[in-house]
C-alpha cells in the first residue's frame, strides 16, 4: 500500500483546501476503513468511525508536523476513534453484533467448527481482537496499547498471548473440520 503523501497536497490541506482534503480522503479511505473494521468488527460502526476520524484529522491537520509518516498519524486518529466507539457500545450491543457477523456469513455451524483467519478474527472478543491487530499488524508496542486501553503493559501481553492462542485454536478446528469432511466424503 502506498502510504506516502506529497508535500504539496499536505500543505494545501493545511491551508484548508477542500480538494486537497478530498485527495487525501480518496487515498487513505480504504486503509482507514480496514483498520476500523478490524477493530470494531461491525462495518456500520467502522463506517461511522472512518468518517469521524477523517473529519477530526482534517480539523487538526495543522497539528501534523510531518516528522513521522502521514499514514501513521492518521491511523492513530482512526484507532482512537475506533476504541472510543467500542467503549461507547453497551455490552449487549457488542454481543448482538457478534451474532450478526456470525449469521451474516450464513453458516453459524461452520463458524462454530472451523474458519479461516479472517473469520477467526471476527470471533475474538473486542479487546483481544484490538490488541492482536494493533500489535501484530499495525506494529504498536505493548506500552502504546496499554496507554490506549488504559491498562498495564502486562495486561496487553496477556491479551495478545490469549488472542493468538484462541486464533490458533479456531484455525486448527477449521483444519480438523475440513479434514473430517474430506474423510467422510
Amino acid at each position: 500500500m502506498d502510504t506516502e503523501l506529497d508535500e504539496m497536497t499536505l500543505a494545501r490541506a493545511k491551508r484548508g483546501d477542500i480538494h486537497a482534503c478530498e485527495q487525501i480522503y480518496r487515498k487513505f479511505q480504504r486503509p482507514a476503513f480496514t483498520v476500523a473494521v478490524r477493530i470494531c468488527k461491525c462495518r456500520e460502526l467502522a463506517r461511522d468511525v472512518t468518517q469521524e476520524a477523517f473529519i477530526t484529522a482534517f480539523k487538526r491537520i495543522r497539528q501534523y508536523r510531518g516528522d513521522a509518516p502521514f499514514w501513521g498519524w492518521l491511523r492513530r486518529v482512526v484507532v482512537n476513534h475506533a476504541i472510543s466507539a467500542l467503549r461507547k457500545l453497551p455490552k449487549h450491543d457488542a454481543v448482538e453484533m457478534e451474532d450478526y457477523m456470525a449469521s451474516s456469513k450464513g453458516d453459524v455451524e461452520r463458524i462454530n467448527h472451523g474458519m479461516d483467519l479472517e473469520q477467526a478474527l471476527v470471533q475474538l472478543g473486542d479487546e483481544d481482537r484490538m490488541v492482536v491487530w494493533l500489535h501484530d499488524v499495525e506494529g504498536y508496542k505493548h506500552r502504546e496499547i496499554a496507554h490506549l486501553v488504559g491498562k498495564t503493559e502486562s495486561y496487553s501481553k496477556t491479551r495478545l498471548n490469549r488472542a493468538r492462542a484462541k486464533l490458533r485454536k479456531l484455525i486448527s478446528d477449521d483444519d480438523e473440520a475440513a479434514l473430517a469432511g474430506t474423510i467422510n466424503a
Binding site: R30, L117, D136, V137
Partner: peptide
C-alpha cells in the same frame, strides 16, 4: 499468524 497477509477491506 500472518494477519498482515489479510486483504484490506473495500469500503
Amino acid at each position: 499468524l500472518g494477519l498482515r497477509e489479510l486483504e484490506s477491506i473495500e469500503p
